[in-house]
Amino acid sequence: MWIYEKKLEYPAKVSRPDAKMAKLLLAQYGGPDGELSAALRYLTQRYTMPTGKTKALLTDIGTEELAHLEIIATLIYKLMKDVSLEEIKEAGAAGYYIHHDRALYYTDANGVPWTAAYIQSMGDPVTDLHEDMAAEQKARTTYEHLIQMTDDPDLIDTLRFLREREVVHFQRFGEALNLVQEHYAHRHVF
């Protein structure tokens, strides 16, 4: 089971309210390669991973992604908290405001709602781990795009941490893929 811990994995600070960045950060909240997609992807694929090690890795990275989802939510919340309606309109976030005010909702940066179609679970661990590695790279690229869009040093610091975690996850998934391939090489299941 899961137990909530009342603290963030990493500090999530912003220097000033910024509706434009809040809207863009939704990419990593409810977007295709965002933290919700990542958490749900790994936590549903873990059941059919073939070994204890790979079951553990998907459980643990899936859990860490939930912590990252909370960091992104915190950033968006803080960026939106004190913005004026004028700034919301200027940021092109009026449509979001109509449906959600300043509340958190799972959409991407363009307002497209989250869908399970963003993730796969194929039952073939080699296939699933390839998807996971690709997802981590796409998330890393998204963080780099986000970092390019702001000069807020506090926001950049947190985004850099999240970007770095994508790199580490990619590395661990790659190692897991090697383990799985060795596992099957010794078993001749095909």
């Binding site: 873990r46 059941y47 204890g52 090690k53 079951k55 553990a56 459980t59 643990d60 859990t63």
Partner: peptide
């Protein structure tokens, strides 16, 4: 529990099967 919530003796047994499912 992982993530420093439990201490682990001798070897990293966190990955041991069976998992809850």
């Amino acid at each position: 529990m992982p993530f420093g919530q439990s201490t682990v003796e001798n070897r990293w047994s966190w990955t041991d099967e069976p998992w809850p499912w």
